[in-house]
Design a protein around this nucleic acid. Structure first.
Length: 312
RNA sequence: CGCGGGGUGGAGCAGCCUGGUAGCUCGCAAGGCUCAUAACCUUGAGGUCAUGCGUUCAAAUCGCAUCCCCGCAA
């Protein structure tokens, strides 16, 4: 069984690793081209590329996977199976028709729920208690192909999008091995579009905290938007990222407005939400490093009655 | 050469513009108060003000250069 692996982000690494460790014949790894990234826009390659090179596998990084040149390059490999995990480009039908058996995709949700680019983030933001990974046959419509296998996992109270991505990534790797084993005669279960929901790619603005929302919603937003864009608010005209909060539900807010600081603890700042309050435990002001609330309080003259705002 | 913020006792910050005694909150140590305490009061230790060069009678502060950290953007 000759496999071509398509992947770019961290989520793909575990799956590729699993395939390598199990001794599958990976003829080529396709990943996004190196891009200028980071503080001084230096060239950076994807983590998948790093792993592939370490394992001595050929790497293919087309700007556009659907051009004739790209298709011919893939065709020449003569693969039986395409495994696509968080690749970052949409494959056209000519590409999908190349593998002898089929093209499969690992998606980080229990399809048909949370189709789209950011299923892990949105599952947490929406307060889901269970999510999982799905392997399906790839079809032209995004994340709509028939399901081959699925595995559930519960979302813990203290999970963030980062920790959940790691868990799901591992789970995806396990499920991939089980699925690939008898990929030639699997059953396909069509998705029911009636139950489909969409998890669009996060925008910076998705991380903006609306203090009128409930403490639980804000708590979920903080956990779900990591590592990017992160939940943020504004204090003294500066952007403040909020990394860790605790829910603080028992709170009578009648005399306060949403976003108002009502109490300063030794190691936390209590802020009123639409329902309940949250305690900020770890934060970061623009230009400064991430710090605990205790550190922040020590150096900034935070006082009760000040407010966190939704804009500068 | 993408834009910007910053490096000041152990931590987080002020002071810099308008050079002239090293400041604040916390932590730490000792003592006191207290049934008691992470609370409160008193005292104390701890700093080449990132590095180098320059300007000046005098530089944390002004100028030039270097190193390091971080946010945004992507």
């Amino acid at each position: 069984m000759k496999i071509v692996f398509f992947g770019s982000s961290h989520f793909a690494v575990s799956s590729l690793e699993a395939l390598i460790k199990s001794g599958y014949d990976i003829a080529c790894v396709v990943t996004q081209p190196d891009k200028k990234k980071g503080r001084h826009l230096h060239l950076a390659s994807t983590c998948v590329k790093t792993l592939a090179e370490a394992a001595g596998i050929d790497v293919f990084q087309p700007q556009d996977i659907n051009t004739n040149d790209s298709v011919n390059h893939l065709k020449a490999i003569g693969a039986d199976l395409f495994v696509i995990v968080a690749y970052g480009q949409i494959l056209s039908q000519p590409v999908l028709d190349l593998p002898g058996v089929m093209a499969v995709n690992i998606h980080a949700s229990l399809l048909p729920k949370y189709r789209g680019a950011a299923p892990i983030n949105w599952a947490i933001i929406k307060g889901e208690e269970i999510t999982g990974v799905t392997i399906m046959r790839v079809e032209r419509r995004m994340d709509c192909g028939p399901v081959i296998s699925q595995k559930e996992i519960s979302i813990n109270e203290d999970d963030t999008a980062i920790s959940l991505e790691i868990s799901l990534s591992r789970l995806g790797g396990e499920l991939l091995l089980e699925t690939v084993k008898n990929i030639k005669n699997v059953k396909l279960f069509p998705q029911n579009d009636l139950y489909a929901t969409y998890a669009s790619k996060l925008k910076k603005s998705d991380g903006l905290i609306d203090w009128k929302k409930t403490a639980i919603e804000i708590y979920n937003l903080v956990r779900g938007t990591l590592p990017w864009p992160g939940a943020f608010t504004y204090y003294n005209s500066k952007l403040v990222k909020i990394y860790i909060v605790e829910k603080f539900m028992l709170f009578d807010k009648k005399d306060f407005s949403c976003g108002e600081i009502v109490e300063i603890l030794k190691d936390g700042i209590v802020v009123v939400a639409g329902k309940g309050a949250v305690i900020i435990k770890e934060l970061q002001i623009e230009g400064k490093r991430r710090m605990t609330a205790a550190e922040f309080i020590a150096g900034h003259k935070v006082s009760v009655g000040e407010s966190l705002l939704t804009k500068k």
